[in-house]
Design a protein around this nucleic acid. Structure first.
Length: 572
DNA sequence: GCCGTTTTCGGCCCGACTGTTTTCAGTCG
């Protein structure tokens, strides 16, 4: 059983206990433990086998440690089992219904026996819900439309790049208003979580009405969920929820911090403030003794008021970031200026849409001093990949093009297919003379684990690879990824100086932050790549950068933070 | 259930919005 499965059980316990009406603090304890386990790179099973004391982990005490041991031994938690005996399994799906929380779910179950979406729909159609105390016609109508919506949507979370793109389009539209003084995407998108449940946008303006009128009138908007004085939420036609919050300019920093979250980070920050005789809300830091706001304008002010340095949004997940901030142990994070070049991109030579000079021009505008062109090899026909002849010709072309630039280096590279037997889909002599080789899997992804291990080991030991492209093969919200023994392949990669890629392209984010942190801590180098198929695609480097920040990867572990000359030395 | 800049016991963030209420509970982030 992997960490996610342990976390799922703890989360299920948390939700069921809420519905049962237990202390909300006990529920939260299970949620905290679940989150802690989910983002931990070490495998909980191995820790238990090694006799590691789980209570030393964040949010895990004696009781939950005991649960975890029982799950390890028997595959099931007694607490979970007991809860499931009281409530049918399907009751958990009711939490997806907007407007239904634990109290109402319990009421619906106790009074009407509602235990899943199907029985909820029947009761709503029969008018039984509006007859319950505290619930009326509007609630019943809303439930009906929610059931219809949920029947048509299987996923509740959308991949970060899509969420950000949707958010930026709304920001662009609202920014046309003269009354907007400041506008920023907040929430999980700002923190760089790989999927988002909704899009949070913060606005500073004096004309709240105009902002909201414009917002709800946008063509992407399907319907208005709530509209108040300072906050409006809509659902887009795509199904995504967007929340817009408007504050005064002087409150922007406080509001940005509040609206960025995470929820657990905010709880910890506010608890700390409380102990210092302060109260933090979205308007600022309030000194309780005289009810004066002592900080509001910037996030730095908010953190400063409680004796902390500014903490990067990517770190605000309610883990150990506050403790680290206090001890001066916040990791140094890279930013876009740390990335000197992009080492994964495609051109018209395979399935890209732009020429080499066009890619160079865009790369220069991003501040890069080098790029590697890495068109596909021929194995997967749909990519229009290169045969040996074509690759040889492209290397020539790249050498000539490189001559034209004094302040920029164009590297000859390739994204070569790792074939089923682990051999590489290219003339090996050419791999030897080119500058940069990304090895990737694009076929036979469902191979059995043992075979995949052998395939990758063969490739890793070939002596030709510089990087392992999109190393898990997962697609966000889609494909799960290849099955192989990470530690085994990681060892071979380190031995052969092969970097693991953090691929920023839409839908991939592969490696993700958790795995990247793991491989980096184990000693592997990481390379950030856009996997661009057009000049615009080069912008997706920012997702690789942001995930590397979440993973707390130091600059010294990022291969393309080196200059071209040092990169070539390091990969010899 | 967890945890400790005041704590091994007693706290555990804070406010907006809605609907069903005649003053507030429930939900949400």
């Amino acid at each position: 059983m992997n960490n996610a499965q342990y976390a799922d059980i703890l989360e299920s316990i948390a939700t069921l206990r809420q519905i049962r009406g237990d202390s909300p603090f006990k529920s939260r304890a299970f949620e905290n433990a679940a989150r802690s386990i989910r983002k931990m790179p070490e495998k909980i099973e191995e820790l238990i086998d090694e006799g590691f004391d789980l209570t030393s982990l964040d949010g895990i005490g004696k009781s939950i440690s005991g649960e975890l041991h029982k799950i390890h031994e028997t595959g099931e938690s007694p607490t979970h089992k007991e809860l499931l005996a009281n409530f049918p399994d399907g009751i958990l799906e009711l939490t997806r219904v907007e407007g239904l929380g634990p109290k109402r779910i319990k009421l619906l179950y106790d009074e009407l026996g509602i235990c899943d979406l199907a029985s909820l729909e029947i009761a709503a159609e029969a008018g039984q819900i509006s007859a319950l105390p505290g619930l009326g016609q509007k609630t019943e109508d809303k439930i009906k439309s929610e059931v219809i919506r949920l029947k048509n949507t299987s996923v509740d979370r959308i991949p970060l790049p899509l969420a950000r793109a949707a958010g930026e389009s709304i920001v662009a539209a609202l920014s046309k208003l003269d009354c907007i003084q400041k506008i920023e995407i907040a929430g999980s998108i700002r923190r760089g979580r790989e999927t988002s449940k909704d899009i949070d946008i913060l606005v500073a303006s004096k004309d709240y009405t105009l902002v909201f009128d414009t917002f709800v009138g946008l063509k992407e908007v399907d319907n208005i969920l709530v509209r108040g004085d300072t906050k409006t939420s809509v659902r887009l036609k795509s199904g995504t929820q967007v929340d817009v919050r408007v504050v005064e300019l002087w409150q922007f920093g406080a509001a940005l911090h509040y609206f960025t979250g995470s929820k657990e980070h905010n709880i910890q920050i506010r608890s700390r403030a409380k102990k210092m005789g302060l109260r933090i809300n979205e308007y600022g830091v309030l000194r309780l003794s005289d009810e004066e706001y002592i900080a509001s304008k910037t996030e730095e002010d908010i953190f400063g008021a409680i004796g902390l340095p500014w903490i990067a949004p990517e770190l605000r997940e309610g883990g150990d970031e506050i403790e680290n901030a206090l001890n001066g142990k916040l990791p140094e994070l890279i930013d876009k200026t740390s990335v000197m070049g992009d080492l994964h991109m495609h051109t018209l030579e395979s399935d890209g849409r732009n020429t080499i000079p066009e890619m160079i021009e865009k790369a220069k505008s991003l501040g890069y001093t080098y790029i590697a062109i890495t068109d596909h090899s021929a194995f997967v026909p749909v990519t229009g990949g290169m045969t040996a002849d074509r690759f040889a010709a492209q290397i020539e072309e790249i050498r000539k093009e490189n001559e034209k630039h004094s302040d920029f280096t164009l590297l000859a590279g390739i994204e070569v297919d790792i074939l089923s037997d682990g051999s590489l889909d290219m003339d090996l002599e050419l791999l030897k003379v080119c500058d940069w080789v990304v090895g990737s899997i694009h076929s036979g992804m469902n191979m059995k684990k043992e075979n995949m291990n052998q395939r990758l080991l063969t490739a890793m030991h070939s002596g030709y690879l510089n990087a392992f492209g999109h190393p898990t093969g997962r697609i966000l919200g889609g494909r799960k990824g290849y099955d192989y023994d990470l530690d085994l392949i990681l060892g071979a990669a380190i031995e052969n100086k092969i970097a693991f890629e953090m691929n920023g392209s839409t839908g991939r984010l592969d490696l993700n932050a958790e795995m990247a942190k793991y491989v980096s801590q184990k000693g592997a180098m990481v390379v950030l790549g856009s996997d661009a198929h057009s000049t615009r695609g080069l912008d997706e480097m920012r997702y690789a950068i942001q995930q590397s920040r979440r993973a707390e990867i130091p600059k010294s572990k990022i291969l393309n933070s080196l200059s071209a000359a040092d990169l070539l030395l390091a990969t010899r």
